[in-house]
């Protein structure tokens, strides 16, 4: 063994550990380099994402399309679970509002509730009146004898006579209106309504509208219009119709009597054929209508 070989052997022995650790270090450095490269790639991807998001955010349409589904889902959820989420708070708020702003609350609701209540009461009362009438038809007692006699001579039933005073029925106005043109043939008014020609026209337009709207569904005529305390009863004749504006509460017997009375008036005082609606016809029909309604009111003890 020569000197050189011995030296190499010695070197190998002495540096073996060094070499091993150098190799490990090199490997670690390589791993770190790779990791850094991966991280760089990831950063690039994130950068692109951020840039895309920035673009979306600045573009209303894109941003909307991304955000909309989230909002929609939330709204859907709220719709379904609103009561669960906010029911208690809403209840408490309304309670507090009603407690502290009672006057405003009543003022707001009264027009709606008031009308509903009034209609309901009127409806119930009509029913009640009808019920009383039906029962009285069958009833007999000496106590009612005088009332029945009085009613008989007045041409009305005793039960009608009894409740009539408190019903405050009133024929406010009556219009005889040409069926096709809506021209006013005659009128009676207890309170001088402003423009009876326009009322006649508009009533005819309403009738025409209803007729046109329901033509294919059902054959018929508009018979009643209700507005607030007024009830307009419409009686149809061949060439014209009579619209009577009434206030108060009345039953079917009253209506039947009025129908009969108007039928009688029509046959006697309104010409069958009307060529022109002129002042002579108007005055003649109006005059007779007034007498006729006054007769009816007197007969019916209104």
């Amino acid at each position: 063994m020569n000197e050189k070989s011995l030296f190499e052997q010695l070197q190998t022995i002495l540096l073996q550990e060094e070499r091993k650790s150098r190799l490990e270090i090199n490997k670690k450095v390589q791993d770190i380099k790779e990791e850094v490269t991966d991280l760089k790639d990831e950063v690039e991807v994130i950068k692109e994402d951020v840039s895309g998001l920035k673009e979306d955010y600045q573009n209303d349409e894109k941003f909307g399309s991304k955000v909309e589904p989230i909002f929609n889902n939330k709204i859907k959820d709220l719709k379904v679970n609103f009561q669960q989420y906010f029911g208690h708070e809403v209840k408490e708020t309304i309670k507090a509002e009603i407690k502290y702003s009672r006057d405003e609350f009543i003022e707001t609701l009264y027009p709606i509730i008031g009308q509903i209540v009034r209609r309901y009461v009127k409806y119930q009362f009509d029913g009640f009146l009808q019920n009383v009438s039906d029962k009285m038809e069958k009833a007999f007692s000496p106590g009612w004898y005088w009332k029945r006699m009085k009613a008989f001579f007045a041409g009305v039933s005793s039960e009608e006579l009894l409740v009539k005073e408190s019903m405050n029925i009133r024929i406010e106005e009556a219009f005889v209106i040409h069926l096709e043109s809506g021209l006013l043939i005659g009128c009676y008014s207890s309170n001088n309504t402003t423009d009876v020609d326009l009322i006649a026209g508009m009533l005819t337009a309403i009738k025409a509208f209803v007729q046109d709207a329901f033509r294919e569904k059902e054959y018929g005529e508009l018979e009643t219009i209700e507005y607030g305390k007024y009830r307009i009863l419409i009686n149809h004749f061949h060439k014209y119709y009579i619209a009577s504006v009434l206030t108060g509460v009345f039953d079917s017997h009253f209506k039947q009597n009025l129908d009969k009375h108007l039928m009688h008036f029509s046959g006697k005082h309104v010409p069958d054929s009307i060529k022109d609606v002129d002042d002579r016809l108007f005055e003649s029909v109006s005059k007779r209508l007034k007498v006729s309604i006054q007769e009816f009111e007197s007969e019916y003890n209104i």
């Binding site: 040409h178 096709e180 043109s181 809506g182 337009a205 025409a208 046109d212």
Partner: peptide, 20 residues
């Protein structure tokens, strides 16, 4: 009678013409 305008008169409710 001032009738609401329609593209064609055939679309105006027939009864509005009656008695004119």
């Amino acid at each position: 009678w001032d009738i609401g305008g329609e593209q064609s008169q055939a679309r105006v409710p027939e009864s509005y013409y009656l008695g004119s």
